[in-house]
Design a protein around this nucleic acid. Sequence first.
DNA 1: AATAACCCCAACCGCAAAGCA
DNA 2: ATGCTTTGCGGTTGGGGTTAT
Length: 330
Amino acid sequence: MGRAPCCDKANVKKGPWSPEEDLKLKEYIDKHGTGGNWISLPLKAGLRRCGKSCRLRWLNYLRPNIKHGEFSDHEDRIICTLYYNIGSRWSIIAAQLPGRTDNDIKNYWNTKLKKKLVAANYVAPLPLSSLSSSPNSELMHHPHLQYLPSPTAALCTSACYFKDPSARLLLPAAAVGCFTSSSSDNDLKYGSGDQMFHHHHADNYVAGTVNLQNYPQLNNNKDYNNSFAMLGGTTDGSCTSSDGSNSNINTKYHISHELYQIGFHDHGGVRNKLVVQDDIYIYIYIYIYICSTHLRLALALSSFVAHILGVICHLLEQEVCLVNWTTDGS
DNA sequence: AATAACCCCAACCGCAAAGCA
DNA sequence: ATGCTTTGCGGTTGGGGTTAT
């Protein structure tokens, strides 16, 4: 014997709701509430509908403060971040977007957002399981990646800034930062970590360099220590200075024209330090050599690192941000 | 102009969890 | 503790609208 049906299928109307039915349902709920029982509601409200149908109509369409229409970039970013961290748990995702329903977000993801990411050449983050197996096993065989036999022009990266606004969707908001050109030696100038800090607070990309006098918040090291996860990259495990240079390698990195064109402004160091609390650090070591022409690998790595950070955020139940780590003076 | 193909989204369905007697 | 009912969720469908051929 199967389970009892929730309503008399033969006597309920199916299909699109008419304006009259909407009005009946709305008026009833406005007056009496749902009464905690959707099954009996249609009868009381004078509707020939299944209780589940009424509930769905109310939650997805009729209830107050439902937001219809275009999703904003900000909403896109939230959806992407959560989707790649928790998967298709639409109700949880919807809870982060006031006025949006799970159904709405699900439809939006399946019909538009996914395609938008594909069009932006997005390489989805690798599954976390790839970390627990032998190093590089899945990474090495990722269909979108191509490895060089040995790095000749070795560059490293940990995150990147995209000039194209739509490409910013590729990374969780916390991981979107900016990389500057190398600073000269004499001026009071700051590199990508500093820029990231400013970016986080101003929500604007600031090209070029930053004069400390203009940004007093940069003086407050406590903010750095308490609020940011830090990421950078070098080829030998040492750290970079704030402008992306590294004395161990004894040369400044140069940005290829190709990379620069897509908004890849600089490269950072690899010894990564995630500050969880005042006295707790998590170090993430990533040693991957990237030829400057392998853009897809660079993009994949960025997504990959962002994904790891997303998981860390989730586990710690604490928001962290991603900045380029520096060694000089800190 | 007609038709096919595609897109979008409201609504449905079945399952699992939660609630309750 | 058990079993039934109700709710909530996520995958899927169907049909109306739009675009391409």
